[in-house]
Design a protein around this nucleic acid. Sequence first.
DNA 1: TTGAATGCTACTAATTCAATAGAATCGATG
DNA 2: CATCGATTCTATTGAATTAGTAGCATTCAA
Lengths: 137, 137
Amino acid sequence: MKLNTKVRYGLRAMLDIEKNFHGKGILQKEISQRQDISLKYLDSIITGLRNGGLIINTGGKGSGYKLAKPASRIYVYDIYRAFEPELTLVNCLCDSMECNRTGLCPAKDFWFELNIHLKSLMQNISLKQVMDGTFKF
Amino acid sequence: MKLNTKVRYGLRAMLDIEKNFHGKGILQKEISQRQDISLKYLDSIITGLRNGGLIINTGGKGSGYKLAKPASRIYVYDIYRAFEPELTLVNCLCDSMECNRTGLCPAKDFWFELNIHLKSLMQNISLKQVMDGTFKF
DNA sequence: TTGAATGCTACTAATTCAATAGAATCGATG
DNA sequence: CATCGATTCTATTGAATTAGTAGCATTCAA
């Protein structure tokens, strides 16, 4: 069970933007250098974050990126979702072809609850909390 | 982020064995039929569980499998570990070549705590609780 | 000694994933 | 207008992982 690197890099990029934004948009190149991610690969990360509505280009002079919302209203799960479909720990939770044992299979019920729990953790911890280290489980 | 099918089938096999064991060892064939898992693939699942010390062959007449310990002392994470290395949500947590930013990178610290939390959930919910549906998060 | 059940090694086919290539576009500046 | 840096898009590659199967060896009780 692994998180893919896009989510991982995505979170770092978001934190980088938030930390270094002081009125002037952040360039991909800066993030690339600070976070040690190749510009080309970061390109796809930025695309994901932008399409997910998490960052926006400041436009105008000295253009660059900033967060689309305050860090306190962006959640870890938002970033996850910028790169992944809905969290589904096991396929039998989403693919009814694969399993229709809900209520009959204790294993399925367990994974179902674990799935909800894990998702809700990520939905409730904000970028700001991650940045400050003030999140709690 | 997905759980692999071995862990998933492994849990089902364990539950099947516990549920159907009444003094007489459970045959792979029975599990295969009840759980609708090909005998060949189940073979590798059983191997994992056996090597993980979670099930044992009853030996003797009417041989078959039973749990190696009471279901109340087998934990979900035990089953996970029968098929996976230690839970590591992101590579930067285990591979120091990849990242040595502990305490510097808020993202890493977050994944680290999430990792601990998730692992500890699985370490504290027993097979019996899964079977009864009495687990709680 | 036979036959069912188990155990072992290897293999394949499919999928996923990280990362790069190359070109098109955009936008500010001189 | 020309250009240069930065961004954006599409496509591709190469590697790793994984679900599932094949085939055979072994065991063990009847």
